[in-house]
Design a binder for these strands. Structure first.
Lengths: 341, 341
DNA sequence: TTTAATAATGTAATCGATTACACAATATTA
DNA sequence: TAATATTGTGTAATCGATTACATTATTAAA
C-alpha cells in the first residue's frame, strides 16, 4: 500500500516544520521565495496531494454538493445534471447525486444522509409526492444553502430556477391558434404541481390574448404516459368534431394520443394538430415528428449551479433569487398548417 | 450558524470522557449498558451525527466511490448509474459521477481529481479515445480497487462487467437468418472498441453456425448516429438487390437507415429486415418499431457495484473477476417475417 | 484476607492541514 | 549604537473521532 505523502514528509526532507510547508504550499507571503521553491519542488517529487479529509475537518467545508432528482435516467434530469456538473466541477466542487423516485419518504432519507455527509450545499427538484417542507427547513436551519430547480416548494431564503411554464403553455397554445385551431383541448398532468398548473394557466392566457373562449369540457387530466395518452385519445375521439387542436403537458401523452389517432386514421396535422411538452429525444425521431416545448435543461442546470455558487460565496447572506428559464417552441409536422406528411 | 454537536458535547453533558462516548456509540462491549443508554439518549437529544470528515481522516476511508462514464445523459449510462447507486447507497457509499465526454484527456484529469479526493474505489467505462492505461495503472498502484463496466481495457487485477457482445451480435444475426434473410449487411461502429468488434464477431459466428457465407462488401463501418445511418442507406440502396437484412451495432444508425428506406419506399420488413442494438427508448415508440438487443444496463450497474463491494471488503486481495451480462433479443416489426405494417 | 482477574473508564496520541502566537534574525530608523 | 520594524520560521492548539495503553473499581479465586 503506497501511502500518500504529507506535509510532514516534505518538512522532514527539507529539515523545516510542517507549518512552513503548509504556508509555502498556500503561497503565504511571509515565506521566502527560496523556501517556497524548495517546498514546491519536493512536493512534486513526493507526489504530494493535500488530504481532502483533513482539509474538510479543519475548515468544515467538504466541497461536496448534494443533488436530488426524481430519476437520473430521464432525459430532462440527466441534462440538468450535465449543466450542473459543468458549472461546479471547475470550481472544485463534487456532486453527489441521489434519486427520490418521486417518493417523499425517500427524499427525506436522502436529505438526512446528505446533511450527515456535511454537504456544502443542496440542489433539489422535489418529488411529486412531496407536500411538506419540514425536511428542507432542517437544511436551512443548519445553514446549508438550498436551491430548487424545476420543481420547487415555497420556502423562505431559498433560490430557484424553473422554466417559465406559463409562457410554455402560452407559446404552445398560441402556436396552435396561429395554425388555425380554435377548439383546443388541454391535456394536463397532476395540477397540484406548479409546473403543470402553470402550463394550464398559459393555455388559458393564450386564449384570452387571442380573445378565444376555451371549452371547459376539453380540459382533461392525464398522467405523463403513453397509456394515459391512449385513454385520453378515446375520450377525444368521442367528441372529435369539437376538437381541432391538442396541447399536452407531456410529450408521452401527446405521443399516446397521436398513436391512437393514426390507428383510427385521424389525420394529424390536417384534422387535428398536436403540441407536446419537453422536447423528449424521441419527438424528433418519429415518423410524424411532434411539435413541443424545449425546456433547455442543460441551461437550467447551469443557472441553478451558478446561483448555488453565489450563495456559497456569500455565506450568511441569504439571498432569495428566482430565475425563470425561457421555453422555446419547437415546431414540427404534428402542428404544421397545411403540409401533409 | 447552528453547529453540529460532537462527542465532546455529549461527554461534557454526562461528565464522562469523549473516549467513553465514542465507545458507547460504537457499541463497544467494555462499556456498561447503563452508560450506553445514557450516551445514546443524549446523542439523540443533541441531534448528534458523526463527523464524516473526522472519520475519513482517521480511517483513511471516505466512503466515496468515483464513477466515470462518457456521458450521463445517455439512456444506457444513466440506467447503469441507477443500478450502481441502488447497490452502493444502502452500504453507506456515496457515488461521485464524472463525464469524460469520450475524451482521453478529460478522463485522465478526472482520475487525478478522484485520487485527490481519496475515493475508496473507482468504476469506469472508458472513453472511446482512450488507448493508453497509464492513468489507470496509477489507480491500481495506489491500491484503489478498479472495476470496468461496458467498455474496458486489458489490465491486471481489475474486474469488469460487460455485455456478452459476441452473443448480442450472434442473437441479432441469427434472428435475421431465422426470419429468412441470407444476404445480411453488418453496419458496425469503430471496431477498435471491443464492444463493436465483438458484435461483428457475433455476426460472423451466426453465419458460421448456420453455414451461410457473408458478403464482405456488406461489412460497413459507420458512426452511431442518424446522419451516419443516412449515408449508409445510400450505399445499401445502390446494391439493394444484394441485401435482405441489416444488423446495426447501433439503434441510431438503424433508425437512420430505416428513415431513408421509408422515404425511398423500400419496404421494411418485407423487402429488408433490420435489427439494431441497445434498445434505446425511442425504438419502441416508432411507427415502425425497431427490433434490437437489450443490454440490461440496470443489471449491469448492479453487477459491477457488487464486484466493487467485494473488492472493498477484501482489501489487499486483488481479485480479477469478469462478468458477462446476457443480451436479450427484442423483436419488433422491423424484422417480423411476414407481417406487413 | 490477600491476590488475581475482570469490567469500566480515563489519558493521550493519532490522522493531516491550518493558523494564532511566539521568537529569532535581519533591516531600518532615530 | 540602540530602538524599532520587518521578515521568515517554529511551537502548539485545533478540527472530531478512534484506540493503544494506562488506571481504577469490582468481583472471583486462593
Amino acid at each position: 500500500m503506497k501511502k500518500n505523502s504529507t506535509i510532514y514528509d516534505i518538512a522532514k526532507k527539507l529539515n523545516i516544520t510542517a507549518a512552513t510547508v503548509s504556508r509555502a504550499l498556500n503561497d503565504n507571503k511571509l515565506i521566502s521565495a527560496k523556501t517556497k521553491k524548495l517546498v514546491l519542488a519536493t512536493a512534486r517529487e513526493l507526489n504530494y496531494e493535500k488530504n481532502a479529509s483533513a482539509l474538510a475537518l479543519k475548515s468544515g467545508k467538504t466541497n461536496l454538493i448534494g443533488l436530488v432528482v426524481p430519476y437520473i435516467n430521464r432525459h430532462f434530469f440527466s441534462n440538468i445534471i450535465m449543466g450542473i456538473e459543468e458549472e461546479l466541477n471547475p470550481k472544485g466542487y463534487h456532486v453527489m447525486i441521489f434519486q427520490s423516485n418521486d417518493s417523499y419518504k425517500k427524499e427525506k432519507d436522502i436529505i438526512d444522509r446528505m446533511l450527515k455527509s456535511q454537504v456544502d450545499g443542496i440542489m433539489i427538484s422535489i418529488a411529486k409526492s412531496t407536500l411538506e417542507s419540514k425536511h428542507l427547513e432542517k437544511v436551512l436551519h443548519q445553514n446549508v444553502p438550498l436551491v430548487f430547480f424545476d420543481r420547487k416548494l415555497q420556502l423562505k431564503n431559498t433560490s430557484s430556477v424553473v422554466l417559465d411554464d406559463i409562457e410554455g403553455g402560452r407559446l404552445a397554445t398560441h402556436h396552435l391558434i396561429q395554425q388555425g385551431c380554435s377548439k383546443i383541448a388541454c391535456v394536463i398532468s397532476n395540477p397540484r404541481l406548479d409546473i403543470y398548473r402553470d402550463r394550464y394557466n398559459g393555455f388559458i392566457k393564450a386564449h384570452k390574448e387571442n380573445s378565444i373562449n376555451h371549452n371547459p369540457d376539453l380540459i382533461i387530466e392525464a398522467d405523463s404516459s403513453l397509456a394515459s395518452g391512449h385513454e385520453v385519445a378515446e375520450k377525444i375521439i368521442r367528441m372529435i368534431n369539437e376538437v381541432d387542436g391538442i396541447f399536452c403537458s407531456s410529450d408521452y401523452t401527446a405521443l399516446g394520443i397521436s398513436q391512437r389517432f393514426q390507428e383510427e386514421g385521424i389525420d394529424i396535422p390536417k384534422k387535428i394538430k398536436i403540441v407536446g411538452f419537453s422536447n423528449e429525444p424521441f419527438t424528433s425521431l418519429l415518423e410524424l415528428p411532434l411539435s413541443t416545448i424545449e425546456q433547455s435543461p442543460y441551461e437550467m442546470g447551469k443557472a441553478s449551479a451558478k446561483i448555488l455558487l453565489d450563495q456559497l460565496n456569500n455565506q450568511g447572506v441569504s439571498i432569495d433569487h428566482s430565475v425563470k428559464i425561457h421555453p422555446k417552441l419547437v415546431t414540427r409536422l404534428s402542428s404544421k398548417i397545411s403540409l401533409k406528411k
